[in-house]
Design a protein around this nucleic acid. Structure first.
Length: 595
RNA sequence: GGGGGUGUAGCUCAAUUGGUUAGAGCGCCAGCCUGUCACGCUGGAGGUUGCGAGGUCGAGUCUCGUCACUCUCGCCA
């Protein structure tokens, strides 16, 4: 007989009745009836009830066993009496009558209950993550994550991709986020950086002739956390394809994501190919480059209808170059006064001066602003929004950027408040045709996304077009308002790369200095290539229906990038610091604390 | 760095307008109970109301400061 078990706690059925079984696991609960004790024994696979008779020599001690201790039982598998069958347990038709027992690992009193699904504060959960991970919902999330990643590997391999590891210790590069640095012992004063993404390595692999690369890749960025963004580190399904177009990348990702989402969720998934929405259209209609398409509301431009009208607040905005955005919401004219007041308050809370609205009720218009508008204008608005009796149109007037942002927030809020968002669907879309450049706050031309992206018109665009008019083969994939990934067809032409950087104000030497490997590689016959890197954590988060990314990560850090279980970041020995040729210059506040 | 929320027993929460000795459920400890499965019953222990000031006859409740967690803006090409 095996040292610890012949069966797991999830596998015994009627078929094993009369066999002697050995099971090991955690004490999920103890029900002491005085003359008889029931123990639910739990392991990774399930729960099995163990019965302990008073005749057993170990009976006396059992009453005092604490939950979450690990024990081993040997006993006979018996059928439960019909009245005692538990239909909620897969093992509910049998129980084990204990004949021998062994305590394997005693537990202290647990700081929070493991067997019960009770909310518990985050800090405690992170400090005792090993206990939290025993709890059913988190345990299941980690299992789900494992299955998803395993399936991703199968699907990517089936699509002809090879998984290749790229370095974790690499060089710092000036792109994007803040780097995590690792000091070099051998080279005083020099530092490795943890990769923000394997971006340059995967492009180098393309120049090395590997046709289709992928990796479940750890990425490190020293930026602040959000509910859907873990601090420090996260994983991407990183991929790159040689001799490939944007459509090739879309096709592979549609296959893989559609399968993953179909297989790991009961929700309704969009058919492939997924909808493609140009960036500009997304901004106009949804005010966002990651629209939640479950929300049917869209924004429209009503600026011209308000130009020169008697409603000075709006007319003035339009006259000074601003816009009036409108959202038509069907069937909500009957909402209470409070609803509309709350919406106005909400709009103000996100920076709007106000929120205009028109309500069509019983053939009449009810609105604080209707009296300023001509019948003709009202009819034109009605036509624009496609509204009728019982419907409402909301209006936001501001400068383009502000109106867009506020409109997007109002759209989201209306979607939530009016219950328009179907929780049982996944709505995907590709956002395409991102601009290559944008103006930064100082009015300077800057890359708007990835400087390695290919301009859609190639060298011709770079030479001739207004930089702000150049579109890139740069795309995002969005699901239910969550950005799963950005990707791009890369610029593999070294000369075009120099020119693209020049437009953003960087000298040729900057490209050579900052991206020496890529730029050198591109000079030895680079294949055209394209890629993307969907976020694994976010995909699991959507499929697990969890609002917070910590719920799908086994050992997450808190919002301040601390690992409360391991105590990271932590102090190190002075010798270690000396070996690395470092001296600390701590802020005064921290110095005081460590004294 | 800015803004919002939260902080009361080991855990989850309550405590009317500022008013008696800060309560409940779960957990813990002790006892009873032979068919429960969130077992049940009886009893008990457990509190610097995050911390520090202020004001009040009187503060969990009001004011100020501070700390922690969280959400968010900045940031994440």
């Amino acid at each position: 007989m095996h040292r610890y078990r012949t069966h797991t706690c999830g596998e015994l059925r009627k078929e094993q009745i009369d066999q002697t079984a050995k099971v090991s696991g955690w004490i999920n609960s103890v029900r002491d009836h005085g003359g008889i004790i029931f123990i639910d024994l739990r392991d990774h696979y399930g729960l099995t009830q163990v019965v302990i008779d008073p005749a057993q020599p170990f009976y006396k001690g059992v009453e005092h066993w604490r939950v979450e201790s690990t024990v081993c039982f040997i006993g006979k598998v018996v059928a439960r009496i019909p009245d005692a069958v538990n239909p909620r347990l897969p093992t509910g038709e049998i129980e084990i009558v204990a004949e021998e027992m062994e305590m394997l690992g005693e537990s202290l009193v647990v700081p929070f209950q493991v067997a019960k699904d009770e909310e518990c504060n985050e800090m405690l959960r992170l400090e005792y993550r090993f206990l939290d991970l025993r709890r059913e919902s988190l345990h299941n999330n980690i299992i789900l994550r494992s299955r998803i990643i395993s399936r991703m590997r199968e699907l990517m391999t089936a699509e002809g991709f090879m998984e290749i590891q790229t370095p974790i210790l690499t060089s710092s590069s000036p792109e994007g986020a803040r780097d995590y640095l690792v000091p070099s012992r051998v080279h005083p004063g020099k530092f490795y950086a943890l990769p923000q993404a394997p971006q340059q390595f995967k492009q180098l692999l393309m120049t090395s002739g590997f046709d289709r690369y992928f990796q479940i890749a750890p990425c490190f960025r020293d930026e602040d956390a959000r509910a859907d963004r873990s601090p420090g580190e996260f994983y991407q399904l990183d991929m790159e394809m040689a001799f490939a177009t944007q459509d090739d990348v879309f096709e592979v990702n549609e296959h893989v994501l559609h399968k993953i989402f179909t297989e790991f969720s009961d929700k309704q998934i969009d058919d492939i190919p997924f909808k493609r929405i140009p960036f500009k259209e997304a901004m106009d209609k949804y005010g966002s480059d990651k629209p939640d398409l479950r929300n049917p509301l869209i924004m429209q431009d009503a600026s011209e209808l308000f130009r020169g009208c008697d409603f000075k607040a709006f007319a003035g905005v339009v006259a000074s170059g601003g816009v009036v955005k409108t959202i038509a919401a069907k069937g909500c004219a009957g909402e209470s006064r409070k609803f509309f007041d709350d919406m106005i308050k909400f709009a103000q809370s996100v920076g709007s001066k106000g929120l205009g609205y028109l309500r069509w009720i019983d053939g009449e218009i009810q609105s604080p602003i209707a009296k300023f508008l001509s019948e003709e204008t009202l009819n034109q608005l009605k036509e624009l929004g496609g509204v009728g009796d019982g419907d409402v149109m909301f209006f936001v007037a501001d400068k383009m950027k502000e109106a867009t942002e506020i409109g997007a927030a109002v759209r989201d809020e209306l979607g939530k408040r009016l219950g328009l968002i179907d929780p049982d669907v996944f709505k995907f879309c590709w956002i395409v045709d991102f601009p290559m450049y944008e103006l930064d706050d100082d009015g300077k031309v800057e890359f708007s996304h990835n400087p390695f992206s290919m301009p859609q018109g190639g060298m011709k665009d770079i030479e001739e077009k207004d930089p702000l008019e150049i579109l890139a083969y740069q795309y995002d994939i969005v699901c239910n308002g969550t950005e799963l990934s950005s990707g791009a067809v890369r610029n593999h032409n070294p000369e075009m790369m120099y020119r693209a950087f020049e437009i953003a104000g960087y000298d040729r030497s900057v490209v050579d200095e900052k991206f020496p490997a890529l730029q050198r590689a591109f000079k030895y016959g680079a294949p055209p290539h394209a890629g993307i890197a969907p976020g694994v954590d976010r995909i699991v988060m959507l499929l697990a229906d969890e609002p917070n990314i910590r719920e799908v990560i086994a050992f997450p850090m808190n919002q301040k990038a601390q690992d409360l279980l391991m105590g990271a970041p932590g102090n190190v020995d002075h010798h270690q610091i000396r070996d690395l040729h470092l001296k600390l210059h701590l802020p005064k506040k921290v110095e005081k604390e460590s004294e």
